[in-house]
C-alpha cells in the first residue's frame, strides 16, 4: 500500500533528474517506440519468410483417389527446388525479366539522370511545371498505367498507332516479340519521375562553389556534369539502380493487366506471375514457395552485385 502511494507520488511530482540522468525512461523508450514496427516485422515479414521456406521443403502427397482421399504433407528436401529449376516456363520467365531489366533499367536511369542534370542546369525553362509533369505518372497506380497504355497499344483505339500509320509505319505493340518492350515502356513512364527527383534532390545538395571552381578552371556545363556532378551524386544513382533491379525481377502488375488486351502475355510470363498462378490456379503452394525463394535469392544476389560493382568503381576515384 505504501509502495503504491510512493510510486504515484513520484509520478505526479515534477521530475527533475530524479532517476539519475533520466536513465530509466531513456533506456526503455526505444524499445517501446520500436515495438509496433518490430511486432509487425516479425508477424508479416519474418514469419511469412519462415513459412515460405518450410513450405518449399515439403510436398503434399495424396493417397487414394476421389473426395475421400487423405492428403499428407511430407518432407521432400530440395525436390521442389529441382522441379522449379528444371521447369522450362519458370526459367524462360526468369530469362525474360533479366533481359527486360538489362534494357529497361539503363534506359530509365539514363533518362532520369539526363532530366535531373537538365533541371539542375540553367538550360530549362518552366522547370517546376516540367518536373511535375515528369513526376506525375508516379502517382498513377501501375494497374491504371498499364490499362492506359494498353489502350494506346490497341490499333482500334490508339491515336499513337494512327499517327505512326499516317507516317507509313505499321507498328504492332502487342506482338509476341514487342509486347515485352511495350511493358517496359509502361514502367519507364511510371518510374522515371521518382528516380529523377531522387537524383535531382541529391544534385541540389552539392555545394555550388565546387561548380564555380570548375568554371574558373575552364570546364563547360557538359564537362562539369560529366566529371563533377555525376560522381557527386553516384550514391543516389546506385540507390535508384538498386530499387529498379529489385522492381524489375518482381514484374507483375503491368503484364498481368496487359493480359486483357493481348493473348501474347501468358499467365506464366514472368516468375512472379508464374508463382501466382502456381499457387492459386495450380494449388501447389509448395512449388510456388520454392519459386518465390529462388526469385528472392536471385534478387538478393543481383542487389549485392550492384552494390559491390558500384563500390569498386567508387573506390577507383
Amino acid at each position: 500500500m505504501s509502495a503504491a502511494t510512493a510510486s504515484t507520488a513520484s509520478r505526479t511530482r515534477p521530475r527533475r533528474r530524479l532517476r539519475g540522468g533520466g536513465g530509466g525512461g531513456e533506456r526503455t523508450a526505444p524499445y517501446v517506440f520500436l515495438a509496433p514496427f518490430v511486432l509487425l516485422f516479425i508477424g508479416f515479414l519474418v514469419v511469412p519468410i519462415g513459412l515460405a521456406i518450410w513450405n518449399s521443403l515439403h510436398t503434399v502427397r495424396r493417397s487414394g483417389l476421389g473426395f475421400g482421399s487423405a492428403s499428407e504433407t511430407v518432407f521432400t528436401g530440395l525436390s521442389n527446388y529441382t522441379e522449379a529449376l528444371t521447369d522450362a516456363e519458370f526459367l524462360a520467365g526468369l530469362g525474360r525479366v533479366l533481359l527486360y531489366g538489362v534494357v529497361q533499367v539503363p534506359v530509365m536511369l539514363a533518362l532520369a539522370l539526363t532530366l535531373a542534370l537538365l533541371f539542375d542546369s540553367a538550360a530549362v525553362r518552366f522547370k517546376r511545371f516540367l518536373q511535375l509533369s515528369v513526376f506525375l505518372p508516379y502517382a498513377v497506380p501501375a494497374v491504371v498505367a498499364a490499362l492506359l497504355w494498353g489502350f494506346l497499344y490497341q490499333p482500334q483505339v490508339s491515336p499513337v498507332v494512327d499517327v505512326l500509320r499516317s507516317l507509313g509505319a505499321d507498328p504492332d505493340f502487342l506482338a509476341p516479340g514487342t509486347v515485352l518492350w511495350s511493358i517496359a515502356n509502361v514502367t519507364v513512364w511510371s518510374v522515371t519521375g521518382v528516380n529523377m527527383i531522387i537524383i535531382f534532390s541529391a544534385l541540389q545538395t552539392v555545394p555550388r562553389d565546387i561548380y564555380e571552381a570548375a568554371r574558373i578552371d575552364g570546364a563547360g556545363e557538359f564537362r562539369t556534369a560529366l566529371r563533377i556532378k555525376i560522381p557527386m551524386v553516384a550514391p543516389a544513382i546506385i540507390l535508384t539502380a538498386l530499387f529498379s533491379v529489385i522492381g524489375t525481377l518482381q514484374l507483375f502488375n503491368e503484364p498481368m493487366v496487359m493480359r486483357s488486351v493481348t493473348s501474347n502475355v501468358s499467365s506464366e510470363y514472368t516468375p512472379n506471375m508464374m508463382i501466382f498462378s502456381t499457387t492459386t490456379q495450380g494449388g501447389n503452394i509448395n512449388l510456388g514457395s520454392a519459386m518465390a525463394i529462388l526469385l528472392g535469392l536471385v534478387t538478393f544476389a543481383l542487389s549485392v552485385a550492384v552494390s559491390v560493382a558500384s563500390n569498386r568503381r567508387g573506390g577507383k576515384r
Binding site: 508479416f44 515479414l45 507483375f252 501466382f276 538478393f300
Partner: peptide, 27 residues
C-alpha cells in the same frame, strides 16, 4: 539491438514482395 534493427530494415528492402505475398495469404 539497434544495429540488428537497422540491418533488418535495410535487408528487408531487398525481399521481393512475392516471397511474402503467398505465405502472408496462408497466414
Amino acid at each position: 539491438g539497434r544495429a540488428l534493427v537497422v540491418g533488418a530494415v535495410m535487408g528487408s528492402m531487398l525481399v521481393p514482395q512475392t516471397v511474402l505475398a503467398q505465405p502472408t495469404y496462408q497466414l
